[in-house]
Nucleic acid binder design. Sequence first.
DNA 1: CCATTTTGAATGAGCGTTCAGCAAATATGT
DNA 2: ACATATTTGCTGAACGCTCATTCAAAATGG
Lengths: 232, 232
Amino acid sequence: MHLRLKKNETAVRMKLSPEVREAADTEKRGRKASKETRRQQLIEATIDSLAKRGYSETTLADVADGAGLSRGIVNFHFESKEKLLIATLQFMADEYAANWGAALEKAGDKAAAQLWALVACDFDRKICTKRKLAAWCAFWGEAKSRPTYQALCGARDVKYQDIFLALCQTLKDEGDYAYEPDGMTLALCASMEGLWLRLMMGDGLTREKAFSAAVEYLLVAFPKHFTREGPK
Amino acid sequence: MHLRLKKNETAVRMKLSPEVREAADTEKRGRKASKETRRQQLIEATIDSLAKRGYSETTLADVADGAGLSRGIVNFHFESKEKLLIATLQFMADEYAANWGAALEKAGDKAAAQLWALVACDFDRKICTKRKLAAWCAFWGEAKSRPTYQALCGARDVKYQDIFLALCQTLKDEGDYAYEPDGMTLALCASMEGLWLRLMMGDGLTREKAFSAAVEYLLVAFPKHFTREGPK
DNA sequence: CCATTTTGAATGAGCGTTCAGCAAATATGT
DNA sequence: ACATATTTGCTGAACGCTCATTCAAAATGG
């Protein structure tokens, strides 16, 4: 009963990833962290674990350790591992959608500028992290056999696709290009996803190089609308 | 001691996938199947399992059942699950490389024809199966955290990349195109991988549509060299 | 105190691996 | 030819480990 350890305060000395630390730092500390804060902290730890160990080797123990919390914690805040993973994917999908939504807002109303913004924001620092790419890829690998994942992995979803298609269509009309817009759009979207895949595989490809490859595509597809520096 | 079951002969009545059946059918049956035949049979069953259940839920029991053989069998022919998976990936990588190698052979020596062949063969019936795409994707998801997989997943490897780059370079010179060939090649390769990814996710995208999207890309990039029907 | 959050030991299911043993195929001896 | 021994391929029960889940007890805040 004497000499009791104050665990929380000393345990924080452990090395947590910056993302987890930040998620836990929303004002309140230790026990006072709100439910939502804890959930976010655990989600960040899950992304860490997915990136570090891959889907199949991600364990609740690793997530809990990564968050600097105890073993049973996940089943308290989420009720199962499955639900934690879904919440994690949901979070990433929401973040992704918010990102391109905001980029579109800021782009003004010229189609060329919008398309450029949409392509550029995919390679944004905030989204296009090794950490997050790896997590995305982990989910992609499992999506085939899990309808729930499959639905969320289409964050690049129908709406996103339609906007892309509409923009390509507009530019085609403006510029009198000859291509078939469905195929063109598909190839462009696919190219961006493929670039993500390669970024994740990590053979010395950088965000900047990937982005400029995507730009190269825009240039040949819409020569009247773009230069390497941006929309005309 | 009386009334002994003839297991092998009756057990074959189970429903095995066509691929497994074919692998097991190389002349000899039952006990006489050669070591190499059995390995192939197990590899096909592994691809089935990866496609059906995803990487994380693929078990040796499922593989053995899929092959119509007993539980201990994998550890007899391969020595561990890990090695079975590596052998499976190796097999797919070899098959993929052989496929584009052969396509290149048959294409003659005009650069445009070669590039077309290289793109087309990626969407070949033999390679581009739902089953195999799903298996590829399962490995991609784990590749990040496993150097061995990462190395093999680059079957789309350096050599492949270099050929692509050289062809794009040649066409650029022939056609006086303005783009920067490194980026162009990267975007093209990425596009094909992205199309695979989407084929696997399976939102009603067909092999044919994916291929024509890739062709659309070739058209805008190399307008003087290609029509929708093929190289000029 | 009571409610809420957190802990960590206990539980049990699932899975990879091992291995003794059986049966088919092949080699050897007569 | 046949009988016997040896090798090879395969089986499936048993073992032990990892990990998600549960829960009683403790810590904390109000």
